[in-house]
């Protein structure tokens, strides 16, 4: 079992994906942190808001990297013909997919560790640093497990990297849009409210907002946001288990 995991990690970091993603993410964190601390207009923001912006960037970037890597994980192997060889071994498709999921979670953990110094830098002088790190870890891990599981299942289902990446990017954009792109008036419409209520990304962002901007640091104050994210992750894992438990090679 571990051999598959090791192989996936090695493959990810041997190819451009793993290493370049981490370096790019570190550069983006540096740029955001630098702008927040030095830009005239941005530095006028409340420190909690600065930290909230940085955590939004960390989680969004984590989701995008995980989704792109996971969406191509199975389909790339199908397209290159290596998946058939794996299916010929006495390892179930579910175990193969699970190892891929673990290797993507590992990339998120590396990304998360890389982000910690930036959180501390922006949170300097406040009591928000530890909370920000813990909640980014909690929400980030839950969302990355959910999105990656969903992406791997879709990747195996669609069998095409192009199609699975496009599908997952569309899903992620729809879920990220209330937090990143919706104006406050749009958020208050029935559509905006419904999307916010069922959207795990919105719950995450709203939780971080209340935690870091409104300083609501009690766990009980965040539970209403944590549950929907946990439910989303569970649904994605069920979907993953259902679609990876059996896998058939297609074509004559």
């Amino acid at each position: 079992m571990l051999e598959l995991y090791r192989h996936d990690i090695a493959g990810t970091f041997y190819s451009w994906k793993g290493g370049i993603w981490i370096v790019t993410a570190a550069l983006i964190f540096s740029l955001v942190a630098y702008l927040l601390l030095t830009d005239k207009e941005l530095s006028l923001l409340d420190q909690g808001e600065m930290l909230f912006t940085l955590t939004e960037v960390i989680i969004s970037l984590g989701i995008i990297i995980s989704v792109i890597t996971a969406s191509s994980s199975v389909s790339t192997e199908i397209e290159s013909g290596t998946f058939e060889s794996l299916l010929l071994t006495p390892v179930t498709p579910w175990k193969i997919s699970l190892q891929k999921l673990l290797s993507i979670i590992t990339i998120w953990i590396i990304l998360y560790v890389v982000s910690i110094p930036y959180i501390f830098a922006v949170a300097g002088g406040t009591n928000l640093g530890i909370s920000a790190i813990l909640y980014v870890g909690l929400y980030g891990t839950l969302l990355i497990i959910g999105f990656s599981a969903l992406s791997i299942a879709i990747s195996g289902r669609l069998r095409s990297s192009k199609n699975s990446i496009m599908t997952m990017i569309m899903i992620v954009l729809i879920l990220l849009s209330p937090s990143l792109f919706f104006a406050s008036s749009l958020k208050k419409t029935d559509f905006g409210l419904t999307l916010e209520n069922i959207n795990p990304v919105s719950h995450t962002m709203n939780s971080l907002d209340s935690l870091l901007v409104d300083n609501e640091q009690l766990l009980s104050q965040q539970l209403s946001h944590i549950w929907p994210v946990i439910i989303f992750t569970i649904i994605c894992i069920v979907f993953f288990t259902f679609y990876t438990r059996k896998f058939e090679i297609k074509g004559l």
């Binding site: 051999e3 598959l4 192989h7 493959g11 041997y14 190819s15 192997e77 290159s80 013909g81 290596t82 998946f83 058939e84 060889s85 794996l86 071994t89 006495p90 390892v91």
Partner: peptide
């Protein structure tokens, strides 16, 4: 199979070690 795919970044020995571990 008619057309096997291979991990181009691995060498033959690593490839066989990988499959031996899967078995």
């Amino acid at each position: 199979p008619e057309s096997s795919g291979f991990y181009s970044w691995m060498n033959a020995r690593e490839y066989l070690v990988y499959f031996a571990a899967l078995y």
